[in-house]
Design a protein around this nucleic acid. Structure first.
Lengths: 347, 347
DNA sequence: GTTAGCACTCGTTCGAGGTGAGTGCTAACA
DNA sequence: TGTTAGCACTCACCTCGAACGAGTGCTAAC
């Protein structure tokens, strides 16, 4: 017994219905609501076959059928192959995704919020990351007599700041001149390269050994800190789905959303795929046994890649989500200077 | 009929028990668990009086009594007047609150997380804000041919970045020299003062009018952006309390936590009070009708104030929370250079 | 003023019975 | 040979009523 055209149509109907209602769907529903020209008895036979093939599950004997992860996989693959993403999402995304957003983090935050609002699921957005960022500029700013703020600007547009404390007194002027030297020496280097330079610099600028040691530590930490700041939106959306009416489940999901590092790992997408859809167990995350994660990438002007993700129940509205994410990815790419076709105007 | 010593002790016992169990407490429980040397009947009479006085509520006639907001208010006032905060929290806070935390935002985030872990409630931390920050340094960094990243460093240690796009081509060298000029001219000014300087600068640097216009807009936005980045921890903690076993309630609470701006408004604390406790209706937030909010302030070296807050059910463990927040406030003040007694060592 | 006793209230639990959605199987039909 | 009607069967879910018990208010005695 193999999958034929009719079985596929029935399966599709079941999935559609289940996505809508979250209630196990019975043979009668299919034969009535989706006019297949078949009686419920026939559908029943087919459903029995589909169950045997592993596409349907039955919560208990007198309940309807529920699509399995395998079914969703088939469904999504079909969707992706067809590739005809609904286009009406473009206006929606554009309508929401504009306004004053210059600051990198604001963009990320806002994107997550829009994505969650439009999809009604939980959205996660990772900022662009790529090869080791290169230092553009280092500024030391005096904060108090014995503390300086070091601001590191990289070509990734990512700025990190940290406080260095020293025992000697620091005055603004000398900090300024040190900043100049540092920028000159370290400009164009990656963070880890910069760390290697520290001893040399120390030799040259003896007076500042304490400061430079501090800087070294900061650079090291920043280099290691591969934890990009994830933006999350619509965590509470998840609670509106019956899948999460169980408090314990809801709690564990929410705590997962709170551990941003882990979340970033889960979402961050390697490889070149424009879309990834992980269904249920495929996520590899126990807490997300009945979630699906859809991720997509966007690309910035300097070739760095960021990820956007949507987390929802396995019975997610894949078609809608994929389409929205597609548009959102394009928008982000444009905003970050990739999309050459229509550079976003400021106001 | 007035409140006497015995009534107060009974009320206290009821509150203690309810805080622990979240179950309406009956007369028998009080007479047995808390040896008052009184029979349940006597307690019953007193409880009836306390209800009449507005300190107790009765969910239904055959249930025990529940403390009213008025009762918590009395309880907390008593607690604050006594002022003897438990001191064992100091070690707890210190044990958690150390390690590498140099970056301003990391500190805030970490503080929120520690606070929520220690209290088991939801914690919110607002970064220090104060008088208009003054510009220390402005850096333009080329991002692409027609876009520059502007990084503004202020004495508040707050760094904001934004992208400016122009039609002319921008090369690194000229950006660097522009940065130098800008820093020279705007150093020491507040953001709004800087905006006023823009026309003058434009006159002097004709070539860069487009860039400067962009800068003006950015400065304006940053000046307006009074929305500090709030850090939240332990939102999921709230779900473990029976008060929030109702999904709808949980949802509305969580969405409130997601709208950070509103949350910041709610938490941000004006005035000089070291502690504020708002109980139930006192919060003024409908979604928090049965929450209490405890806030405290901390102070940085340059006199700016930040706020930490804990949100929990009205039957919060006030004593514990107040004590933890007290320590945490001190720690933050020290970390930000206020507490002169023991400047935090780096490693 | 305190306490024992008692009738009363009312939310909670538990089991029985009814209901209905849905299934699998069989036999008849085209 | 595939499709359909019919039917017995299963089982989650709802409802209802009884039993239960925690807790109260009141009264009378100490």
């Amino acid at each position: 017994m193999a999958m034929d055209e009719r079985k596929f149509r029935i399966l599709q109907a079941i999935i559609d219905d289940y996505i809508l209602t979250a209630v196990p769907v019975g043979s009668r529903t299919i034969s009535k609501k989706y006019d297949m020209g078949l009686s419920s008895a026939t559908i029943r036979n087919e459903m029995s076959d589909l169950e045997e093939l592993g596409y349907l599950d039955q919560p208990h004997v007198s309940a309807g059928r529920v699509p399995s992860a395998k079914a969703y996989r088939l469904y999504v693959d079909q969707l992706l192959r067809a590739g005809k993403l609904r286009s009406d999402s473009e206006q929606m995304v554009k309508a929401h995704f504009l306004g004053r957003m210059r600051q990198m983090e604001d963009v990320i935050d806002h994107a997550a919020q829009v994505l969650s609002t439009l999809t009604n699921y939980t959205a996660v957005v990772l900022p662009p990351t790529g090869s080791q960022p290169r230092i553009r500029n280092i500024q030391l700013v005096s904060v108090s007599d014995t503390a300086a703020l070091v601001v590191i600007v990289t070509d990734a547009g990512i700025v990190r700041d940290a406080v260095i404390r020293v025992s000697e007194e620091l005055d603004s002027d000398s900090l300024y001149s040190i900043s100049r030297t540092l920028t000159q020496e370290l400009n164009g280097r990656t963070l880890s390269e910069a760390v290697e330079q520290i001893p040399q610099l120390m030799a040259r600028m003896q007076a500042q050994s304490e400061l430079l040691t501090g800087l070294g530590t900061v650079l090291n930490e920043q280099g290691e800190a591969v934890k990009p700041r994830v933006a999350i939106g619509g965590t509470s959306n998840m609670l509106s789905y019956p899948e999460y009416s169980d408090m314990e489940k809801a709690r564990s999901f929410l705590s997962l959303m709170e551990t941003r590092d882990r979340l970033a790992d889960i979402i961050s997408q390697k490889g070149e795929m424009s879309f990834t859809v992980r269904i249920g167990p495929e996520t590899g995350v126990p807490e997300m046994a009945d979630c699906s994660i859809v991720t997509a990438t966007y690309t910035t002007g300097n070739g760095q890649q960021g990820t956007i993700g949507v987390i929802g129940p396995t019975r997610m509205q894949y078609s809608r989500v994929l389409s929205i994410m597609n548009t959102m990815g394009q928008q982000l790419s444009e905003l970050f200077g990739m999309g050459d076709d229509e550079p976003l105007k400021l106001e």
